[in-house]
Amino acid sequence: MTLQELLQFKHPIFLAPMAGVTTPQLAAEVCNAGGLGALGLGASTPAQALQQILATQALTDAPFQVNFFCHQSTELDAAQGQAWLDYMAPFFSRYHVTPPTALSCIYPSFLDNDDYLKVVLETRPKAVSFHFGLPHPQQIQALKAAGIVTMVSATNLIEAKAIEAAGIDVIIAQGIEAGGHRGVFNQAVDSAITTKDLVQLFKAHCQLPIVAAGGIMNGQHAAKMLNLGASAVQMGTAFIQCKSSNASLAYREALFQQPITQITSSISGRPARGLVNHWHTQVDQPERPTVPPYPYTYDLAKQLHQTASAQDEHHFAAFWAGTRVAHIRALEAADLINLVMLEMKMPS
């Protein structure tokens, strides 16, 4: 069965499930334009996830994916946490506020319990995707028994083979160009492979359908991935500027003003690519202490951004974006999909 038959989309364009950015409205607009819409639910509570899925289902009859995080939850080392709090304290002092004195685990993992799984089984979206790792075997079996298509991000061949061995249906090939968090779960190394090379590598060594993700902003980019063997492309940065996304006005404006991105783990505790700002130019100094694990570090980053933005300063924002952000166009979802499809048919 082809990926198109499996997921029943008209156009091979997937909306990336960006937590905090995707909305039921944006997901439905992509679906109704023939693509595969998405909800990034990793930062949502189970109740919020349920609400978003139901809201999307009320806006479209077309299939869409929902996404969760499968990070390995860890206890925070007290000394490491305190060292990070001490290092970041001066940045809070700039805004004349008292720095935080503790770090919280703000995002649970899909692996921690079956609360998110119950929401998915109750609402039955067409597909569920995972970032940062694989669900437990019994969770995968429950999803398969319910007829829900499963997808997992891979950043290297070892991860792709693990995805295939686990019985997952689709591999999302996330290249180094992708905006937002790297989906690395083979923690031995971040291979930093480009999307183009990942697609070719997975096509040569894996049997599962491949979705290319990372640095895809227009039809020419998409066509190259499909010609290399991808069954579809996943686009995130290109859709952030849509009015129906949850991105702030400052985020939208920055996408058109700042064409350079960089990866840092200082914002969340995991490597992630975003627009260059104070995290990259001021926080990531040689004397920076070891960053606490995800999502404890993210707790502090969100507090710092909230503090700064309250004073109309956005240099500590997590404005995630991919390497080709300079190619962004001001288009609503349906128009963007139609243009990408037209560009795919044009000679390069």
Rank of each mutant, 00 (worst) to 15 (best):
G219E: 09
G180W: 02
Q303A: 12
I13E: 05
T2Y: 06
G42C: 11
S268G: 11
D169L: 06
L208H: 05
R329F: 10
Q8S: 15
V120R: 13
L342F: 15
H315F: 05
H181E: 04
T194A: 13
A62H: 12
K126D: 00
F110C: 03
P289Y: 02
K302G: 12
S248A: 12
F110D: 00
A55M: 00
L117M: 08
E122A: 15
S73A: 14
Q262D: 09
Q285V: 08
D197K: 09
M341K: 08
I148W: 03
A78S: 14
P347I: 08
A83G: 07
I168D: 01
I171T: 04
T98L: 02
A321C: 02
H71Y: 14
G20F: 05
A213L: 07
V97S: 02
I158M: 13
F9E: 01
V189N: 06
L331G: 06
T297C: 13
L85C: 11
S129N: 08
T323S: 14
P289E: 03
S109P: 09
A165Y: 11
L304S: 02
I172M: 14
T195H: 08
A192Q: 07
T150V: 05
A58W: 11
Q4V: 07
N186H: 13
S231G: 14
H136N: 11
F64S: 10
A55R: 04
F69K: 02
Q48S: 10
A58G: 13
T297R: 02
L111G: 00
Q200L: 13
A333C: 00
A89S: 07
A47E: 14
Q311T: 01
K345P: 03
L36W: 02
P137A: 04
D169A: 06
L339T: 14
G20M: 09
D86K: 13
F202G: 11
Q82M: 13
T195K: 05
F9P: 00
V211N: 04
Q257V: 06
